[in-house]
Nucleic acid binder design. Sequence first.
DNA 1: TGAGTCATGTAACCTGTTACATGATTTG
DNA 2: CAAATCATGTAACAGGTTACATGACTCA
Lengths: 181, 181
Amino acid sequence: MSLRHGLLGLLAGRPMSGYELTAAFDRSLRYVWSAGHSQIYPELNRLLNEGLIEQVDEGARGRRTYATTEAGIREMRHWLLEMEPTRTGRNDAHLRFFFLWMLSRTEAEELLQVEREFHEADLQEYMAIAASDGDPPWGQLPIELGISYKEAMIRWLDWAIKEVRSNHRKKRPRVVPQKAG
Amino acid sequence: MSLRHGLLGLLAGRPMSGYELTAAFDRSLRYVWSAGHSQIYPELNRLLNEGLIEQVDEGARGRRTYATTEAGIREMRHWLLEMEPTRTGRNDAHLRFFFLWMLSRTEAEELLQVEREFHEADLQEYMAIAASDGDPPWGQLPIELGISYKEAMIRWLDWAIKEVRSNHRKKRPRVVPQKAG
DNA sequence: TGAGTCATGTAACCTGTTACATGATTTG
DNA sequence: CAAATCATGTAACAGGTTACATGACTCA
């Protein structure tokens, strides 16, 4: 039930159409929650029927602009303050790391290297966003989390690549933790 | 299609029954991929029909032990080397951070503090596992990733708590009084 | 006027979760 | 012999993805 809370939260920021919401999901929420238009439009109609959003404008090409109602804001606060988030991970990129032993040393290294490039590119993108961004009260927080996460991934991957190269089979030194602050 | 690869990979490590696989998913793969027995048993039967696993033993209480076939190992290598992993995130705990502005400063701080405790507990658990673990060639790698990730989360949360405490908001949230109870 | 973009929708399919259901074996 | 655990399954439902479908408006 997080699609609705993503929509409710975005609309609480400013009124938008389904089309704009689809773009907002793809632009800013993509790495924490993704949704396509085929999921968004039916959900908007459900939220409208339940009185959690209301239509505030109608434009060209059948464009309908919605805003979060007070009931919708109450629902958001309920979700934020009283609901336990789902803690079940679902990340097939990370799942692969459990089965690296099925590959040769060079294949494993190659996989980790490709992964590193992917996270490195993301990091650059996030840093560009962080430089230009941030008007809602604590708007820079999520992007900084993205940066922290990508940096941690890259540090781990660099360590993992070294491990795979040296191919030790017994006890190994830990990844060097970064100093806080 | 990652459930099947989790199963195939675990069975490539050693032959197991559906019951054992359910426990293995819950024990070691939980934070990257979770699956219950109601999903595992039908999938095992599908893998069996497709010749990716084979039954290698039959025990008490109808227990059936499976192992990955050569076709199954080929499928694993194909998944590891040639398939693009899904990059769409799905994490409602992180999604909440985008909407912290809808809370008061103390509410936001409390949410972040609870989150910190959760990750701190995970970190302790992971460190205990890391101390005792590691037989397959690069078996230490995934748990070290878990540790790196949890450490990054805690560092970010500490920073975010400070931010929320010190930075005054630019815009008042549209706070609606909550219903009692 | 044709291509691109804006804008909304439905349907089939796949995956995952929760609940229901059953029986065998072990252990105290 | 009762309770716990081992062991496997099905069904209903919820949520998410891909494909199909349509039309309005803008701009070159």
